[in-house]
Amino acid sequence: MSDELVEKVRAGNDHAFRILIETYKQTIFRTVYSVLRNQKDAEDVTQEVFIKIYTSLPQYNNQGFKTWITRIAINHAIDLKRKRERQKEESHEEYSSDPQLGLSDDVEALFFQNERRRHVLRKLNELPEGYRDVVYDYYIKEKTFKQIAEEQQIQVKSVEVKLYRARNWMRKHWKEEDFS
């Protein structure tokens, strides 16, 4: 089935590619999540992987599609993880050596980060009140669990539970298309 869909995609059939995405998105997400251990990053990288799969289809030679896309996903996730670790080290070094330099020199990353924040702010009002503050503090203000717990005078574990429940609420009530 996959090889037939691949041939249709190569022939320019966008619907066939949508079917491939639907068929393999959970597999790719689980694979990427196993490397990154962060749901938000895994969701973003899953989308990037499908773009990479689409652009790499001409190189695919019909030798196990699932294995091929899984390898692409793992490599992409590992690359991202390494890149972020390097950026943290470099940012820390730059910041400590020259206070004039900002931590966000990558304009493109900053743009997408700001776009995501604006969209989340719009959707934030839909959240139940008990979850809204935790989600806002964690994702928008980028506070740690400990900072949120201290400000709200609750335990760190309570912050984790609230954020977990908020994510479940969002998964249940928001559609993926809302964020496309």
Rank of each mutant, 00 (worst) to 15 (best):
N38Y: 08
E160W: 07
H76G: 01
F145G: 05
K141S: 04
G130M: 11
Q147C: 04
E93P: 14
M170G: 07
P128C: 00
N13A: 12
R84G: 02
N125V: 08
E43T: 05
D41A: 12
E142K: 13
T144Y: 07
T46K: 00
V134H: 06
T46M: 01
Q59C: 03
R117G: 10
E43C: 06
A16W: 01
R171K: 14
V35H: 10
N62F: 13
E160V: 08
Q155M: 09
K157D: 06
D106C: 13
N13S: 11
D178H: 06
I140G: 02
L80P: 05
N75F: 05
E151K: 13
K25D: 09
L124A: 06
A77F: 01
G12I: 03
L20M: 05
H173N: 15
E129C: 07
I53Y: 01
D79W: 07
R30V: 15
E129D: 06
A11G: 09
D98Q: 10
R165L: 10
S96R: 13
V6D: 02
G64L: 06
F179V: 12
R117N: 14
K8F: 06
V107L: 13
I69G: 01
Q39L: 06
L20C: 00
F145Y: 11
I51L: 14
K83L: 12
V161R: 13
K172I: 12
E115C: 11
K157M: 10
R18Q: 15
I69N: 03
D105F: 04
E22I: 13
K141D: 03
W169A: 11
V134G: 05
E142V: 13
A11N: 11
I148K: 05
N114C: 06
S158Q: 12
N61P: 00
Q113F: 10
L103F: 15
S2W: 09
V120A: 09
S96N: 08
L57E: 01
Q152C: 09
K175M: 12
P99M: 11
F179Y: 13
Q152M: 13
E176G: 07
K123A: 03
L163S: 08
R116V: 00
R37W: 09
L36W: 09
M170E: 07
N75K: 07
S34Y: 11
R118W: 04
I19P: 04
F179S: 10
I72C: 01
L5G: 04
I154Q: 02
W174L: 06
K146G: 00
V35W: 09
N13M: 07
V6Y: 03
S56H: 04
L101Q: 14
D3E: 15
H92F: 14
I53T: 02
R118C: 10
E108H: 03
S34G: 14
V159L: 06
I28Q: 12
I78S: 08
Q87R: 05
F50E: 06
Q147G: 03
R18P: 07
Q113M: 11
R116P: 00
R84S: 03
L80K: 04
